[in-house]
Write a protein that binds this DNA or RNA. Structure first.
Length: 742
DNA sequence: ATAGGGTTAG
């Protein structure tokens, strides 16, 4: 994200009345003649309503010019606006404000304290403007989010024929880099070349930074080679440039070059980026070696380095090391460190720990920001817990982050994943300034719930509004097509993605296409498709074909595909389970037994099915046939009643896939106690009428439960949302959003 | 009296 900006022509003097930035209060832009006018000193007593009498100690012994300047410079570095204002009043009282060094120090003090209005007013009071005072003023706008304004002020200086110096260029290169003003940046570059300013390291470094922010790394490399002077900052800029482009090996190569050939030592800044690189490359051993070096050099106690290390370990799945690093930072930990730790917990599926850390963070008085909310909402989605999500949502509103686009996407995703599509839609509709991720998140939500038409509709809206779809957009659309069995539409979209949008398909796109073909019954075509792939087929690509083989009862191909998957993933329990389900459906009990024996031999375990539901802020878990829940007898009573009633409506229990008949228990009895049925039934008993029932399951919903839910939703007139490890099923008045289940 | 580099997310 960068500021909106009008394009400027920096060399022309006539074009100084450019469009104001949107977030900028109007301030009269003086013309050249204004600068020449006699004293118009900005009176702090009038403007700041300061009373000299309230500062008796200062009045008693009036400071001289030098001590005012040094006091102001002290205020600049500490950001102490109140003391700064007192010295402004003193400078006025003593008349030193007429001195240009004092006045410039004042401008700088206001700039550093973030008060651009007073900086500008003080600046306007200067009688004898020079490039230093211009630089002071210009340098303040970027840090206040008004980079475009800095370029406007620069043009005022140009108009006043007050020429730029080295300081001006380093400020402006930084400005152009942050707002991605490529044309202006190049113009300034040319101007700086003419003035031979490049022996100045700061100028060179800011120029490197600018081009690296433009993503023009070729340019950066050439410039870097030819810089007359380099220091550790120059190296860090180049390394960071490659890192941001995700060219981690190049970043590392430069780092090694710096260490071995340059004679310049890397410092905390350099180490921070290098930790981020080893995190990005998943180079666990390298990262740990680096950590040891950082400790040796005393750099691991730097907050930035420490935080980068936290993030790195969490990326390696070493959450314990991340925790340790966080503890070592102690009171040095910044909001970013807290965020990195929370993100680490979420990444490593420790959502409860993430929530606990959030509470500790609040208790410690650390301010939560968009990163915090975004991460913690992801934890709510992963749990998934709608009540926690709603609690975080109210925090987001209180902290005024609800119109933040990233937090918005996380909120949307949270509601969708917690089973409330209506709330997800509400979030989407509230955000008017949509970006591609927000669109993708909503499209993906529709796709997961099986609302293909809505997904396609949004896709068309998105394109009409001029947002370029990304590979994630198509992924969502493919999976929607495949669940709805729309083979041709899916294939057309696949072609369109490549031809019209220039997106190169990756593993997951291929996997979706295999799923699409397979579900449509084109098993051989799916196999041919895999054969013709430009990449080596992975188990993720084979897996959807195995599922299709089961549905279309193609044993031979299923066994072939199963072998392919087991070659790379020998512990994949779903392969054995799918095969034994297939054999069971065909009554091939001998083969079922063989699969079971194989699983035992290889030590592969089937995860027990578990469903859960949130009622009154409490999570209720149910396992198949589990009797531990206190309300179990009521639940079974209700369940039998429901089965009786739904049978009258046409429900026929489907016992085809029951693998082992328990002793003394009928097959029908066995499917009656499936965990999802128990959880839904408990929801019906506990939640007020009309409220949707939201149940989650760790495995796929079985065909019988799916069919039963349709009848139950009609009978009880309830919306039932059932999320399994695969997708969402939204049962409404006897229908399911996913179309026909298989 | 004025300038240059670092970590976290959807």
């Amino acid at each position: 994200m960068f500021e909106e900006r009008p394009q400027r022509i920096l060399t022309s003097r006539k074009n100084s009345n450019t469009t104001e930035c949107i977030d900028e209060p109007k301030m009269g832009m003086p013309s050249t003649s204004d600068f020449r006018e006699p004293y118009n000193v900005y009176d702090p007593n009038r403007c700041l309503e300061l009373d000299m009498l309230s500062m008796p100690s200062l009045v008693a012994s009036l400071p001289d010019r030098v001590s005012i300047i040094s006091a102001l410079s002290n205020c600049s570095s500490t950001g102490n606006l109140d003391v700064g204002r007192m010295y402004h009043a003193l400078a006025f009282k003593t008349g030193y404000i007429g001195n240009k060094f004092v006045a410039t120090s004042l401008v700088d003090m206001y700039v550093k304290c973030g008060n651009m209005e007073h900086a500008r007013k003080t600046f306007e009071g200067l009688s004898d403007l020079d490039i230093v005072s211009f630089n002071s003023l210009i340098s303040g706008y970027p840090s206040n989010g008004l980079s475009g304004r800095a370029l406007d002020i620069f043009m005022e200086a140009q108009s006043a024929e007050i020429g730029p110096n080295e300081y001006t260029f380093s400020i402006l290169f930084t400005v152009c880099g942050t707002i991605l003003a490529v044309e202006e940046g190049k113009q300034l570059h040319a101007q700086a070349v003419k003035m031979e300013y490049f022996s100045n390291i700061a100028v060179g470094n800011s120029l490197l930074t600018m081009y690296s922010k433009f993503g023009m790394m070729d340019e950066v490399e050439i410039l870097f080679e030819n810089l007359p002077n380099r220091n550790h900052i120059s190296w860090t800029v180049v390394i960071t440039g490659f890192y941001k482009q995700e060219r981690f090996e190049m970043a590392l190569k430069q780092f090694n070059c710096m260490r071995h050939n340059s004679g310049i030592e890397p410092n905390e800044y350099t180490f921070t980026v290098i930790f981020a690189c080893s995190s990005g490359m998943k180079e666990r051993n390298y990262g740990m070696t680096l950590h040891a070096q950082a400790i040796k050099n005393g750099m691991a106690s730097d907050v930035f380095v420490g935080t980068a290390i936290i993030d790195m370990y969490s990326g390696f799945g070493e959450i314990v090391y991340a925790e340790k690093m966080f503890k070592e930072l102690g009171s040095l930990a910044s909001d970013v460190s807290w965020n990195a730790l929370i993100a680490g917990y979420v990444r490593n599926e420790k959502c409860e720990e993430a929530m606990e850390t959030l509470h500790k963070m609040i208790m410690n008085g650390v301010t939560c920001d968009q990163f915090t909310y975004s991460n913690i909402l992801k934890a709510c989605s992963a749990l998934p817990s709608l009540t926690m999500g709603e609690q975080i949502h109210s925090r987001v509103i209180k902290a005024n982050y609800k119109s933040n686009i990233q937090v918005g996407s996380s909120l949307l995703e949270m509601y969708a994943k917690c089973g409330s599509l209506v709330d997800a839609e509400h979030i989407f509709n509230q955000i008017k300034c949509r970006d591609v991720v927000l669109w993708n998140t909503m499209i993906k939500a529709y796709s997961q719930y099986g609302y293909l038409k809505k997904a396609i509709f949004l896709f068309n809206n998105m394109v009409e509004e001029g947002t370029m779809p990304t590979s994630a957009t198509f992924l969502a659309l493919f999976s929607a097509c495949s669940h709805s069995g729309l083979l041709e539409e899916g294939q057309e979209l696949f072609q369109s993605m490549i031809v019209d949008y220039g997106i190169i398909p990756e593993e997951n796109h291929y996997s979706c296409m295999v799923d699409l073909l397979g579900r449509a019954g084109q098993l051989e075509k799916a196999r041919e498709f895999i054969k013709g792939l430009p990449i080596k087929p992975t188990s993720a690509i084979w897996r959807p074909l195995l599922a299709s083989c089961r549905y279309h009862r193609n044993f031979k191909l299923a066994e072939f595909v199963a072998r392919r998957i087991l070659e790379t993933d020998p512990d994949d329990a779903t392969v054995y389970i799918t095969l034994s389900n297939m054999y069971a459906e065909a009554g091939r009990w001998g083969d079922v037994e063989k699969q079971r024996a194989l699983m035992e031999l290889k030590g592969v375990k089937k995860e027990p099915g578990c469903s859960w539901i949130e009622v009154n802020n409490k999570l209720h878990k149910f396992y198949s046939g589990d009797m531990r829940h206190p309300k179990m007898s009521k639940i079974y009573e209700k369940l039998r009643e429901l089965v009786r009633q739904t049978k009258n409506m046409g429900y026929v229990p489907d016992t085809n896939f029951v693998l082992h008949q328990g002793v003394g228990v009928s097959k029908e009895e066995q499917i009656l106690c499936h965990s999802e049925k128990l959880a839904v039934c408990f929801g019906l008993l506990s939640l007020p009428p009309g409220r949707p029932i939201r149940v989650f399951k760790n495995l796929r919903v079985c065909a019988d439960c799916h069919s039963a839910m349709k009848y139950i939703s009609r009978l009880t007139n309830r919306d039932i949302v059932l999320k399994d490890n695969y997708r969402f099923h939204h049962f409404k008045r006897g229908c399911c959003s996913c179309g026909d289940y298989w």
